[in-house]
Amino acid sequence: MTKPMTKSQLVATLAEEMDTDKKTANSVLDSLVEVITREVSAGGAVTLPGVGKIYCRERPERMVRNPATGQQIKKDADKAVMVTVAKALKDSVNA
């Protein structure tokens, strides 16, 4: 398994693909992250065509087990960020 692409590598690749400078590519990436964060935090969802859908899901109150002691603990309801990967991306990985 290879190491994940870092932000600076992603910015450099994005700048090359967009035929622009790294400062502009970094600004685009930061803006994209900000928009996604704002939308998902508000309970909405964002679909990135060809990549997938990012959304927030509410999880109910439930019982969990402490792996160190085996004790059952009641965990309050919370929210989790979920990502559903697009079929096109899955197909390209498995091709």
Rank of each mutant, 00 (worst) to 15 (best):
V81L: 11
K74N: 09
I36R: 01
K87S: 14
R57Q: 12
M18H: 02
T37F: 13
Y55A: 14
K74P: 02
T24H: 15
V11S: 00
D76E: 15
R57K: 15
A25C: 03
T2P: 15
T13K: 12
K75D: 09
T84R: 11
L48K: 07
V83Y: 10
Q71C: 06
G52M: 08
K3I: 08
C56A: 11
E34Y: 09
A86Y: 04
K90C: 11
V33A: 09
S27A: 13
T6M: 10
M63Y: 13
L14Q: 00
K75M: 07
I73C: 12
T69Q: 08
I54M: 09
K79S: 09
K22H: 06
I54S: 04
M5S: 10
S92M: 13
D19P: 00
A77L: 02
A77T: 04
I73V: 12
C56K: 10
I36H: 06
V81S: 06
V81D: 07
S31P: 01
S41V: 15
D91G: 07
V85F: 08
M82G: 08
K90W: 14
V40I: 11
E16Y: 01
P67Y: 04
G50H: 05
E58M: 10
P4C: 02
V83A: 06
L89G: 01
G52N: 08
M5G: 13
E61P: 01
L10M: 14
G44I: 02
T69K: 06
P67R: 07
D76N: 13
